[in-house]
Design a protein around this nucleic acid. Structure first.
Lengths: 209, 209
DNA sequence: CCTACCGATCGGTAGG
DNA sequence: CCTACCGATCGGTAGG
């Protein structure tokens, strides 16, 4: 039993460290930064190679193609969010708490894992089939699941009667606005930002009197 | 006097019709659609020429460069929003009404002028200098002006104490979420969408009891 | 508005 | 991991 745990632990550590230490991990991180900055289509393999510190041709010893890099980034991010919404939805929190938890998770991912999350959100259009369809499907399913949480909240009278898919769109896009905060060098702290966003989304702008 | 008005009218009509009727207008509209769909960098002048129905080389009789097309789109949109916020801020509405008005304007522009607004919002990074700096400056100024409206509302006790720049980011990005609504072929009407968004942003999700 | 074409650059491969 | 190189495609020009 302890042996099994040790194996699992070392496997997960190996996977976690691949991104941090290996050459492929370095390529993926540099690619995320460049795809975010210039876009997937406007980033050349020669640009990327220079950032990594090798020749363009050498990249292909670690990755199969430019598109494979994008696939790795997009599906990594998709998995993170899918895992989280499954956990959250399966918990016994009430609806507002579930939504708050999802929002906080999005905000933290946007801050801590900024480049990858941003690229996954804005550059997935450049995926090739069958990855493109697969990604779009996961996206739709995530939103449906989010909307169904809201609909449950409406049925339980915890939440205003609103169109749930619209609310999901608003929240997911609102959260992606952190991009600009990220660039602006944080006049307020990450925690303040998170609290402000959650308050505005759950309670609105208008002062209750 | 009547002669002057007639001249002004014909000038403004000429300008309005250029987009609708002339070849340059056709190029700009097709380019907006393709830049939105595939991104600026992934759209070739040959793709665009085919959509317009001429050879790639012939495009250059109407426009100077690929980048000039992007400039036309981005600054057109910037002017529309700058004009609107100036009008709105100069009006004698209270703060919540001003914000509601700005939000409704954004939503309508996103629906009625979707392609151009989307491209201006997502592809401006590909502008060349000095247009790039100019555009970024206009963008910052717009957000500052929006934030100052909110701050006035907080000072007047109309609005919850929140970080104004954060609220601006949320609202501007929330509104850009209509993109997905646009694609999903409108299960709810444009008016319902608009009302839902405004309600969620001003009053929040939580049911007041 | 077209034909013909330019130099530059692209993603990727061969061979070592 | 590099040198050398491929065919394809890019934005744009000349000349009519």
């Amino acid at each position: 039993m302890q042996a099994l745990q040790a194996v699992l632990l070392s496997l997960s550590m190996a996977k976690a460290q691949r991104k941090k230490a290996s050459k492929k991990g370095l390529i993926l991180r540099k690619a995320s930064a460049m795809f975010r900055e210039k876009g997937f289509a406007a980033t050349s393999m020669r640009d990327l190679a220079e950032a990594v510190g090798i020749e363009a041709a050498s990249l292909y010893n670690h990755i199969r193609s430019k598109n494979e890099i994008l696939e790795a980034i997009c599906f990594d991010v998709a998995n993170i969010f899918n895992t989280n919404i499954e956990m959250t939805d399966g918990s016994n929190l009430n609806t507002i708490a579930k939504i708050e938890s999802l929002l906080r998770f999005h905000i933290r991912q946007m801050i801590e894992n900024y480049e990858e999350v941003y690229v996954s959100d804005r550059e997935w259009k450049h995926l090739d089939e069958p990855y493109l369809s697969n990604f779009q499907l996961q996206r739709r399913n995530y939103r449906k699941r989010f909307a169904s949480i809201i609909e449950t909240g409406i049925a339980r009278n915890e939440i205003r009667k609103i169109d749930a898919p619209t609310a999901v769109l608003i929240m997911l896009h609102a959260v992606s606005g952190i991009e600009s905060w990220h660039r602006s060098k944080a006049k307020i702290s990450a925690q303040e930002l998170e609290d402000n966003m959650v308050m505005i989304m759950t309670d609105g702008l208008r002062k209750q009197s």
